[in-house]
Each structure stands twice: as C-alpha cells, then as structure tokens.
Design a protein around this nucleic acid. Structure first.
Length: 594
RNA sequence: GCUCCCGUAGUUCAAUGGAUAGAACGCGGGCUUGCGGAGCCCGUAAUCCAGGUUCGAAUCCUGGCGGGAGCACCA
C-alpha cells in the first residue's frame, strides 16, 4: 500500500511540474472516510485549478488520464466538483492482503525512523504521592507513542523520571513523623494520605510550615551525602528510605498490570545536585542571572519570548526547572547519544516545556530542536480539577480494580477460570487506555468515573471482543477441518486461495469493505506517526471493527464448503492482523477469549 | 491584566479547507431454527453569535460571548 501511495505521489509531483503549478500543502493524497469515494482520493485538481487556469473538472480529467495510464490494477474516476478517486482492483487487493497474511508480526511496520535512537519519557509518578489517573493517562500516551515510533524502525529508550525529593516529600515525611501511629510507611496508600495531611498543615499552621521547610532543606543535604546530625535526622532518613521503597514497589506492580516497562529510571534526588551545578556554571557563563536572591532565566531571550522562571531558590535549593537540566545531563550520561527526546507533559506545563527546550538549546547546542515536550490534555472530573494535594484523587489502582470487577462479571462461562484474572486485567487496561487514546492528544478529557467503567460502545473492550470473535471463527474453521491447525501452513493456504482468481467477486459487499479497510493499516500507522497522534489509529480501529461486526452479523463466515470459506477466512485473517497490530501499538492486548 | 488552548446532537468524542458533518452513550423500536448478544439493524438529535477570505469554511482571519490552563522561589 505504501508503494502505491508513493507511486501516486510521484506521478502527482511530475504532473505539477508539467503544469507549472506550485506544489501546495493543500493538495493532498488522502484515505477517504467513505469507501464510496474509492480507496485513495486526490483533491489536486481543485487546488490547482486557479493557478493552472483551467476548470477543476477538466484538470481532474487530465490527472485521471495520467494515473489510469501509469498505474496498474486500479480504476481511476473523476467525481464531485473535481476529485480524482482511485479504486483498487481485485488483483492489487489480492497482493496487499497476501502481504498482511505472510508477515503478520511485521504488518504495518515502516522505516521512517530506521536507525534512530529516541528517548521517550513518560508516566513520572512521584513517590510519597498517589499514582492517580493522570499518571495512567501519561503512561497511556507515552506507551502508545513509544510503540508507534518503534514501528517506524527506531530504538526507543523508555525513561521514567520520578520526584523523590522536594517539598512534597517533606510534607509527607512531616506527617509521618508527627503522627507515627496514624500511617504505615510500608503502605503506598498511607503515604498519599500523609502527603495530603502535610499539605493541609503547611497551609494552615505556621509552625508546621517552618518544620516542613526545614525537613526539605535537610533532606537535600542528607541525600547529597551529609551525615545525620542527630537521632532525629537518622529517623528521618530511615523513614524516607522506607517510604520511597514502598512507593516504588507499588508503582512497579502497576507497570506490570499495565504491560508497560522502563529501560531507565531517573530520580529528582540525583538530578538535583547535577542540575544545581549546571545552573551555577550557567550563572558564571551568563545564561542565568541573579534576581531577588534567586537564580533565574530570563524568558525574553527565547523566541518567542517566554516567562522568566526561577531555577535556584533563595535558600539555594534547585527548583523543578534546575532538576530538569540535571536530568538532561543524566540522560546523556546513562543513555548515550540520542537523536531525539520526547517528554510527555500535561498542557498546564506547556510553557514550562517550551522554556526548558529553549534553555537546553542554549546549554547544549547539539540538542537544539531535538529535546521536545509532547503535551497531552488535562484530566478533569465533572466536579473540577483533580488534585492529590487536597486528597481528591481517583487512584489508578482503584479505577483499574473497579473495571476488573466488571469485566469478571461479564466473563462467566466463557473464559476458563485459570485465565480470568489475566483477562480481566487486560480488559480493564484496554478500557482506560482506549478512553484516553480515542480522542485528540491535546484535548482535555472530561473524566466521568461512572461512564468510564462502561465496557460497551466505542471502547477498548469492544475492539478486544471483536478480535476474540475473529479468533474464535478461525478456531471453528480448524475444528471443522476447513483450515489447517498449523500456523505456517494456514498462512500459505489462505495466501494461495487469493491467487486463484474470482474469489473477490464471490465475497459479499460487507466482506469487501472489511478487506479494503484492513489493507489501509500501514498508511494509518504512518499518519499516526507523522502527527504523533495515536487517536488516528484508534479511530481507524473503530471503523474496522464496525465493518467486521456488520459482516459477522450479515452472513455466516465459516461454511460447509471449503471453497466458500477459505476466501472469507483470508479476509478475516487480514482484518484480525490489522486489529491485533493496531491494538498492540496502542498498548492494548488483543485477546483471544474474554 | 497579559499569553495560550477549547466551544459540533441531551452527553462524551470524530471529521487532512472538499463530496450527504461521522460515531458512541442516552432515549424509542427491532434482531432465535446462524460462527461469542461486551454484538447488529432502524429511528431521534448538532457546527456558540456576527462579519470576512475562498469555487468551497465546523476547520482560516477579525470582533463578541462562554469554558479551561499558564504567568518567580510548587511539582
């Protein structure tokens, strides 16, 4: 499909030269939403008409004639005000379906990033705070983006950066010290509560505020290797270590559930001293300057101008900004040279990200333009913004366990008992991930806890269910002896059937739609990558699944006669491959039973 | 106050300047001798307002109105 796409583009480029019209980004080769408009569509005649001094229809006819002559296996027609539509003929559809059947694990893989090394940083939960649904969202987007980039041939280094030092930690530690009987430092849940209590005390109580600030400053010093001054400081350090461990254990369990993993972990505690040094050096070289006792970066030096931000506080502690610079160096040291860095952040940190990217470009010219921040929308509850500061959070864990419970209820009698837990987890994760990925990346998500628990409609579980149905059909065909049990042989048989000719016309219209959508997959993968937009893939999968289910409910797919069944199974296998690969790229497990 | 983002069926979301604005949830009606009803079919219902650019605007521009975010020692 990519080859055809490139061929059409080359023809259009040649044509634009022949007609002496400027190439314009408005003139586009696209996948039409409705298959009535063909498999590929071209709007160039409409865009070029004015410059070429011809009517759109005439120009379209000219494009049609050229493409019809140079492309094999397609029908080209002019439609509407001047669109040129390309419709694939059975022989070319056959070839494309065979491609999907022959290398299902490579189906859709591209080469846009061949040989590149890309760092993707995402999730970023903070020890001593809850892993809330915002982290679930970051993980979902980061994991999908990582997989989409990998599918273009890059080696992706997954990075996670966690805030294990700073005022939030001091607040939690203060509460743990002040109310030792109320919280267990071994339990992640208690740590989140201790943090919320510390926040309240910090705001309401002058003494607590000073105590928390003191803890913060001392903790930085202790973590940089200073010896504890007394027994109280030893206790502080001990509590810190235990709490940090407990949080990280808790996060690791969640990652396993989410089918996500990280190649490198970075911590603010290690980035802080490095960042502080970088800022101090930068102060001498004139990148930073002093202002009101703090060390700041003047945002007006960036293009476009940005807000000035503090990098070192009056007390000399590094802010998040300084730590981020330390992180850049740690990445270079530990990961080695990379072609690009993509850090996912919520939109509320967009201007922060721009400032960091600007400073990084000044400090490390070789990274200019290659250290990027990818923003995603904010997760908002119907009642307003969610905040772990006030304790108003839905934790990732509680949401997933609620979803798991619902999934288990629906599985009665279908899934072997020993697989239910595993399947329920995959369904719960799919529900969350798809809810995030189906909409545009930059847009805020209105999170309705009640609705989010639903497993029906345009959802991850719906796609998994569709996939499971297809697998089940294939198994049935095997049980009835229509299809071989052996995977390799199966692929050869199905592929051969397509070569026999005449199979296409015997298919019902519903199956033809499925086939046409299935072979689009590689182009959809490309576009999702170019725009860093997983939702393009998500929307495509919904359309494909809809077509599959419509076919499924229209006529029997597995039939008594082998010569009727095999072509149907070939289309089905291609659809299943597209669905499975697409789900995998989104970080969702394609299930065989559910 | 300044900067940025967003206003599409009752609700949550799609739509690459292009063809009849597409789904899902909800609501109403239907689908048994069929491969998994977490499904399918039919119906219901929308581009915030006013100008402008364009052969063509939900999309671009200007001005309103409404919502959200950011703007110095938090992360």
């Amino acid at each position: 499909m990519r080859a055809l796409w490139q061929e059409v583009e080359a023809q259009l480029a040649a044509l634009s030269e022949a007609l002496a019209v400027e190439s314009s980004s408005a003139a586009r080769l696209t996948l039409p939403e409705s298959l009535e408009h063909g498999d590929l569509t071209i709007n160039h005649a409409l865009v070029w008409a004015r410059a070429a001094g011809e009517s759109p229809r005439e120009l379209a006819e000219c494009i049609r004639a050229r493409l019809a002559q140079s492309l094999a296996g397609v029908e080209v027609s002019v439609a509407g005000p001047g669109f040129v539509n390309i419709r694939l003929c059975p022989e070319i559809l056959t070839r494309l379906l065979q491609e999907a059947l022959r290398s299902p694990t490579q189906w859709g893989a591209g080469a846009a990033r061949q040989g590149q090394r890309v760092v993707v940083e995402y999730t970023q939960p903070n020890p001593f705070k809850a892993f809330h649904i915002g982290h679930l969202m970051s993980n979902t987007i980061g994991e999908a983006v990582s997989r989409i980039i990998e599918a273009q041939g890059a080696a992706v280094v997954r990075a996670n950066y966690q805030g294990d030092v700073g005022p939030h930690v001091a607040k939690a530690l203060w509460a743990l010290l002040a109310f030792p009987e109320a919280y267990s430092v071994e339990h992640a849940e208690d740590l989140g509560k201790a943090y919320a209590r510390g926040v309240r005390a910090y705001e309401e109580n002058e003494g607590a505020r000073r105590a928390i600030e003191a803890i913060n400053v001392r903790l930085y010093a202790l973590l940089e290797g200073e010896k504890p001054k007394d027994a109280r400081e030893e206790e502080l350090l001990e509590l810190y270590r235990k709490g940090r461990e407990a949080s990280l254990r808790h996060f690791a369990a969640l990652y396993q559930m989410l089918d996500t993993h990280f190649d490198v972990f970075f911590f603010e505690s290690e980035a802080a001293p490095v960042g502080k040094r970088i800022v101090e050096e930068g102060l001498r070289s004139g990148v930073f300057e002093e202002s009101e006792g703090a060390v700041v970066f003047r945002g007006e030096r960036c293009n476009p101008p940005l807000h000035t931000r503090v990098f070192l506080t009056r007390q000399g502690t590094p802010t998040y900004e300084a730590k981020e610079l330390g992180l850049v160096r740690l990445k270079q040291d530990r990961i080695g040279p990379f072609d690009e860095n993509i850090t996912t952040v919520a939109v509320e940190q967009e201007s922060y990200g721009k400032l960091i990217a600007c400073v990084v470009g000044l400090l490390w010219p070789e990274l200019a333009g290659r250290y990027q921040f990818l923003t995603h929308g904010l997760l908002q509850l119907t009642t307003g913004k969610m905040s772990s500061r006030t304790g108003e959070v839905i934790t990732g864990e509680s949401l997933l366990s609620d979803l798991r419970r619902r999934a288990l209820e629906k599985m009665e009698g279908r899934v072997p008992p020993e697989r239910r837990e595993e399947v329920a987890t995959a369904v719960a994760v799919a529900a969350v991930r798809f809810a995030v990925l189906r909409q545009g990346r930059g847009k805020n998500i209105r999170f309705d806890p009640e609705a989010s628990l639903s497993l029906t409609g345009d959802s991850g579980p719906y796609l998994q269910y569709t996939h499971a149905r297809l697998v089940s059909l294939q198994e049935r065909a095997q049980r009835e002896g229509v299809l071989s049990e052996d995977e390799a042989q199966r692929e050869v048989v199905l592929s051969d059937v397509l070569s026999s000719g005449g199979w296409w016309c015997a298919l019902p219209a519903e199956a033809q739609v499925v086939a046409r959508l299935a072979i689009r997959f590689p182009l959809v993968v490309d576009r999702a990558h170019e725009e860093m937009e997983p939702s393009i893939l998500a929307q495509y999968l919904l359309a494909l699944a809809g077509a599959v289910n419509r076919w499924y409910d229209t006529e029997p797919i597995v039939r008594p006669r082998q010569e009727e069944t095999l072509p149907r199974l070939a289309v089905l296998a291609a659809a299943r491959t597209s669905l499975a690969r697409g789900l995998t790229l989104l970080g969702i497990t394609p299930l065989e039973v559910m």
